[in-house]
């Protein structure tokens, strides 16, 4: 187990280095810079600004100093905002986290219920109808689903605010839309997983013991059937916590996701690199957690490591 964790962490560090390097050079290769605006400043001013942000240093020097700073977890200062990248992560990640957790809980429950019910009534009209609902979230882009939900639940019914998550109610709509995306996949995985286990010996035994189909499905088949769901939810959680650009834009939630795209668009070099490194680190850790959980849930994989 320790060896597994160590080797995973080592691989993670490699991935982090690649991501940091690629994002550093790639964004700088894009035309335009953080200080280009339609109102061009005179050259002397431009020079002073570049001096301030060390943009006129040789690229290798910028790279090495940036990497050295990142080693001590200093992601640098935003070039477009009056804040450091560390502060941005600290300020905005909690909002994405809150939204993401709500969405993932919704997706896990809603998706599993749909999937397992569909599996229990496989190849019936119930199965099909449930799966159509489940797939809605992955069939319609969230930037379509979002405005429809806003239009209906916020503007017409007035149940929730249309934007800005001030309180719990404000998180409901965005969490629903975001959760729908994942609920679809969860439902499919749960359905397939349960169908898979239904054919296995211990489930047959349970059935032979005369347990009702309901108990068989929900108690016995579910236990192993949700393993693919957990495998999927791990990395998905990382993605959720790093935020979703579309949802955060439409619902105006001050999360991190917005900045992944915004930093590219506004050429805020340190922000993009910092956010990516943060995201990948998170991803690596969560994958590790999932692997450990996997061992706990399914004893068969323990020996195999």
């Amino acid at each position: 187990m320790v060896r597994l964790i160590l080797s995973r962490l080592l691989g993670g560090v490699f991935v982090l280095a690649v991501v940091a390097t690629v994002s550093f050079f790639l964004l700088r290769a894009a035309p335009g810079g953080p200080f280009d605006t339609e109102r061009r400043v005179p050259e002397a001013v431009q020079r002073n600004i570049e001096e301030r942000y060390h943009l006129n240093d040789p690229l290798w020097k910028q790279y090495t100093s940036h990497m050295a700073n990142m080693l001590v977890l200093d992601f640098g200062h935003s070039m477009k905002r009056q804040r450091t990248v560390n502060e941005m992560i600290a300020d905005h990640a909690p909002h994405s986290l809150r939204l993401g957790l709500m969405a993932i809980v919704f997706a896990a429950i809603f998706g599993t219920v749909l999937g397992v019910t569909a599996a229990a009534r496989r190849n019936s009209w119930v199965d099909y109808a449930l799966m159509v609902v489940a797939l809605l979230g992955i069939s319609v882009p969230s930037f379509v689903l979002g405005p429809i939900f806003i239009r209906f639940f916020a503007l017409e019914l007035g149940w929730f605010p249309p934007a800005r998550a001030e309180d719990f109610a404000g998180y409901v709509l965005p969490a629903l839309v975001l959760g729908m995306i994942y609920a679809g996949t969860v439902a499919r995985l749960a359905r397939a997983g349960v169908l898979d286990t239904l054919g296995q010996d211990y489930v047959r035994t349970a059935r032979a013991k005369g347990l009702s189909e309901k108990v068989v499905v929900w108690k016995h088949a579910l236990r192993l059937g949700v393993i693919p769901v957990i495998t999927y939810l791990g990395p998905a959680t990382a993605a959720l916590i790093s935020g979703s650009f579309v949802i955060e834009k439409i619902f105006q939630i001050p999360g991190l996701g917005f900045y992944f795209v915004d930093s590219v668009v506004s050429r805020d070099y340190p922000v993009l690199t910092g956010l990516l490194v943060f995201y990948v680190a998170f991803l690596v850790l969560l994958n590790l957690v999932v692997d450990i959980l996997y061992g706990v849930i399914d004893p068969r994989t323990r020996g195999g490591g």
Partner: peptide, 24 residues
């Protein structure tokens, strides 16, 4: 496979936006 892992870590959409900006 480590190359695949590294690319996997990169959020695809961010990657596409950056590359599209680079090649314009």
């Amino acid at each position: 496979m480590r190359v695949v892992d590294a690319l996997y870590g990169f959020p695809t959409v961010v990657f596409v936006i950056v590359v599209m900006a680079v090649f314009d």
